[in-house]
């Protein structure tokens, strides 16, 4: 059965948890910007957490389902509708055949994830389904989704009896949609190796001033706008490793936060790193929004990340149980 794109979005790509093992060849990990939301989307429909999902930016694509399907939408809330009727995020939805899924506006967030029960039948490259746009490989033919593309769905389960005569049905269980409230508003950071290159005044500014996300922000990184920060040393950094969430100081005194499609190495001072537990929230910010940084400890960063993992595990167990009940009832 196929999932057809009936209207293209601005940048909709197949992604997963990322491509690891190729950074020594300059192949960046990529993957979903909001990996937490992508995993939740899979969990809700009973998929493996690493299954391929579709990452949507607004304006997003419109989809036509040839057969019944079990789907979920997580991450950003782009006001989704099925056959014209609004449907919620963070809940599994059963669709009847010939359903049309559309998105109407940004209510919240920057990237939405669409998961389909059974997964998407796309070719992995170097063990990942993520689309590598620059190398034009992975995901759906190495590119963003276009009108009339047809993605084959892997599910062979006949969902017709489940949906019956209804057009669609929102299933009664949901993932926490207050994920952004879990943590304080501040973006928690750890000092980077070149933190001490900042002058004392610039360190203070970094911790006290808001940093605005500019429109020069994409899957590679967010360029931030603020009073320029000053460095005490001008010595060049020989190209060295960076990470998702690494915040670099550019020569003009502005900051850039590295995101999913960041390069494998960089030559700018790594002043701070946004901790992993904040990456989901970071990935859902839009240009114009402000970031406030607050220093934390590695111990706290690790504990928060573990908490997130445990939350996902609990959600997975609960969803598996409910899905099995549902699927076995017929």
């Amino acid at each position: 059965m196929n999932l057809r794109i009936i209207k293209a979005g601005i940048l909709d790509t197949v992604q997963d948890a990322g491509r690891y093992g190729g950074q020594d060849l300059g192949i960046n990990p990529g993957g979903a910007m909001d990996k937490f939301a992508a995993r939740v989307a899979n969990i809700l429909v009973g998929n493996d957490q690493q299954e391929a999902v579709i990452e949507l930016h607004f304006p997003a694509a419109a989809f036509f389902f040839e057969l019944p399907a079990l789907i979920s939408i997580t991450g950003a809330d782009f006001i989704a509708s099925v056959n014209g009727e609004e449907v919620p995020v963070n809940q599994p939805i059963l669709l009847s055949k010939f359903s049309i899924l559309q998105f109407h506006g940004i209510k919240d967030g920057a990237r939405a994830y669409l998961a389909v029960h059974g997964g998407l039948d796309v070719q992995p490259w170097l063990s990942s389904y993520s689309t590598h746009l620059r190398a034009a490989v992975g995901g759906f033919h190495g590119r963003s989704l276009q009108k009339d593309d047809e993605i084959v769905l892997k599910s062979t389960k006949d969902l017709c009896p489940l949906i019956g005569q209804k057009e669609f049905q929102v299933l009664p269980w949901k993932a926490d949609d207050n994920w952004r409230e879990w943590m304080e508003k501040d973006m928690l950071i750890l000092p980077g190796n070149e933190w001490d290159r900042l002058t004392d005044i610039s360190k203070e500014k970094l911790l006290q001033h808001p940093f605005y996300i500019t429109t020069q922000s994409d899957r590679m990184g967010y360029r931030l706008q603020s009073d320029p920060l000053l460095s005490v040393v001008q010595e060049e950094v020989i190209s060295s490793p960076v990470n998702f969430g690494t915040v670099q100081l550019l020569p003009d005194g502005q900051l850039i936060v590295l995101m999913a499609d960041h390069q494998t190495a960089g030559g700018y001072p790594r002043v701070v790193h946004v901790i992993s537990a904040c990456h989901s929230r970071l990935a859902q910010l839009q240009p114009g929004e402000a970031i406030r940084f607050r220093i934390t400890s590695i111990a706290t960063a690790e504990a928060l990340l573990l908490q997130q993992e445990q939350h996902l595990l609990q959600l997975q167990n609960a969803c598996q149980f409910k899905l099995e009940q549902l699927l076995h009832a017929y």
Binding site: Y20, D24, I238, E302, L306
Partner: peptide
């Protein structure tokens, strides 16, 4: 997860939850 060499440094990337139980309580995964 992977090891990545550069000019004069190399990075070791890891998944902290996998190491969480191996360490003693007094120390961080790092």
């Amino acid at each position: 997860i992977e090891v990545v060499p550069a000019y004069s440094s190399l990075a070791v990337y890891y998944h902290p939850p996998e190491v969480w139980k191996k360490r003693t309580r007094a120390m961080t995964v790092y």
